[in-house]
């Protein structure tokens, strides 16, 4: 190809005056620009397609015969416990993951000696690369049996809280365990984003705080957190979006039933929308398939709302900082 410029007859580009923006463009230019534009439009079409096809295949799922929704009777009563389970598991995961994620992010950006910070950041990225099915396998086969003791302990000592109102599961395959697995899975996402924002704190501001006689923690409170606040919020929201949509880890860890309960450690656990799709999918009749797709649409709308809220928060504070 390197010879083209000398051998090929000069294409239209030779005639284009670089200064004249409105000069007629060569055919190659038009084709190339058109292709690029088409790719952009393809993304629009693809997302529109997601909405359209999910709606077309999902809408019939709202009005099937009552038997399709066993053990419930209508779509709303079918999806409500699933949505509850989804939120419960995701919130639990966030409660566990967020303090650790911020801690590790601070560790990498401000506490660790350089020689340690780089490999730790790398290891956290590796954690993000582990496929969810492997997390599920590990959670169900290794973590759950290990946590049986913790379940017993929680039931015995914190049983007065509705969350730990036993009887403790003997397999450990509960929302509690699923929440921990989910927490480990969203941890790297929150860590990666907040670590980058923490590291972007202007050095001048940090030095100003230190020069006033701030301890390291005071410096972080005075300069890093105010600077990173919106980024931290959006990191958490993105983690939440991920936790809401995660399928396999929950499907493999939980032994689920359609219940609404805050009890995290018993044998009856609410499924999540995603895990319910995965586990009821194989035996689904065409009618049930519509119902499952409709629940998928609900999940999509829900995660979309969460992600949208996250971007809105970030955008708003970006505008405020710009003023």
């Amino acid at each position: 190809m390197s010879a083209t410029s000398s051998l090929a007859p000069p294409d239209g580009g030779r005639e284009v005056e670089p200064a004249a923006g409105k000069a007629p463009r060569s055919r190659g230019d038009r084709v190339f620009a058109g292709t690029a534009r088409a790719a952009g439009i393809a993304i629009l079409v693809a997302l529109a397609g997601v909405f359209v096809f999910l709606t077309v295949e999902g809408l019939p799922g709202l009005s099937q015969t009552a038997a399709t929704y066993t053990p419930n009777t209508s779509f709303l009563s079918y999806v409500a416990p699933l949505l509850f389970g989804t939120v419960l598991a995701a919130v639990l995961a966030l409660l566990l993951a967020v303090p650790f994620a911020f801690g590790i992010a601070l560790f990498i950006s401000h506490y660790a000696p350089r020689r340690l910070a780089v490999p730790v950041a790398y290891v956290v990225d590796l954690l993000a690369a582990v496929p969810s099915v492997v997390f599920g396998l590990w959670g169900a086969r290794s973590l759950a049996p290990y946590l049986v003791g913790a379940h017993d302990w929680l039931a015995a000592h914190l049983g007065w809280l509705p969350f730990f109102d036993g009887p403790a599961s003997v397999t450990g395959r509960t929302v509690f365990t699923a929440g921990i697995v989910l927490a480990i899975m969203v941890l790297p996402i929150i860590t990666a984003i907040s670590r980058e924002i923490f590291a972007q704190t202007p050095r001048l501001n940090e030095e100003a705080a230190l020069a006033l006689g701030a301890t390291r923690w005071e410096m972080i409170r005075l300069t890093v957190f105010p600077y990173a606040r919106s980024g931290m919020v959006s990191a958490v929201m993105l983690g939440l979006g991920r936790a809401l949509g995660e399928t396999m880890a929950v499907a493999m860890v939980l032994s689920a039933s359609p219940v609404v309960t805050l009890n995290l450690i018993s044998n009856t656990n609410p499924a999540t929308i995603a895990s319910n799709i995965a586990s009821s999918f194989t035996e689904a009749t065409p009618a049930k398939l519509h119902v499952l797709i409709a629940t998928g649409l609900v999940l999509f709308a829900f995660t979309f709302a969460v992600n949208f809220a996250a971007r809105w928060v970030v955008g708003r504070s970006a505008r405020r900082m710009a003023r």
């Binding site: 202007p202 001048l204 501001n205 030095e207 100003a208 705080a209 230190l210 020069a211 006033l212 006689g213 701030a214 005075l222 300069t223 105010p226 600077y227 900082m321």
Partner: peptide, 16 residues
């Protein structure tokens, strides 16, 4: 650092 104050090359008030 509390007793020996410092002013930097570029002004650096806390932005927030």
């Amino acid at each position: 650092r509390r007793q020996i104050g410092m002013v930097f090359q570029r002004p650096n008030p806390f932005p927030t």
